[in-house]
């Protein structure tokens, strides 16, 4: 299930108090990415927001279990455009040149285009897995052909 920042934002206090260090909207983005915790917001734990807090906990629950989710790539749909290869932060971390749009030449990356289609060669390096456990979905979001599915 995809969680959008807007959906989260609607349930936040929307006071922009910045006690968590962010505006409510950017806090919402961080929550969807798994980069912040609900408890970072000092208002949410107060009685008046209890209902919203519980709802948010429910919505964000699947994200905290991101390591149990998977990544599927349909090679029949893939055209080897390399959008996933270049957009993937784990790929960039593995090979610096990938950040500049150059296809990888090593074996450390998550995605590499081989024989015209993208292959997942190191799924365990995906940021959705521990230790990061970030709800990153950029490969799925920017796939031209919807060949990538995160479930």
């Amino acid at each position: 299930m995809k969680v959008t920042p807007l959906e989260i934002y609607k349930l936040l206090p929307q006071t922009n108090c910045k006690e968590c260090g962010e505006t409510c909207m950017s806090f919402a983005v961080k929550l969807t990415l798994g980069e912040a915790k609900l408890e970072d917001c000092p208002l949410l734990t107060k009685e008046e927001y209890k209902e919203n807090y519980e709802k948010l906990k429910e919505i964000l629950k699947p994200l905290t279990e991101a390591f149990e989710t998977g990544l599927r790539l349909d090679e029949e749909k893939c055209t080897g455009c390399g959008n996933c290869v270049i957009v993937c932060p784990a790929n960039v971390a593995a090979e610096k040149e990938v950040a500049r749009g150059t296809g990888p030449k090593g074996d450390e990356v998550v995605f590499r285009v081989e024989n015209g289609v993208s292959k997942i060669i190191n799924l365990q390096r995906c940021r959705r897995f521990p230790p990061d456990r970030i709800n990153c979905r950029v490969c799925e979001e920017y796939c031209y052909t919807r060949a990538i599915e995160i479930f």
């Binding site: 390399g82 270049i86 957009v87 749009g101």
Partner: peptide, 25 residues
């Protein structure tokens, strides 16, 4: 380009991180 120049966006124009566009897309 998704169907004519598959790597146009990923290699040059949209996804790469550049000097004034550090976050890529």
């Amino acid at each position: 380009p998704a169907e004519s120049h598959h790597r146009h966006a990923s290699k040059f124009t949209v996804f790469p991180r550049g000097k004034n566009v550090p976050e890529g897309i």
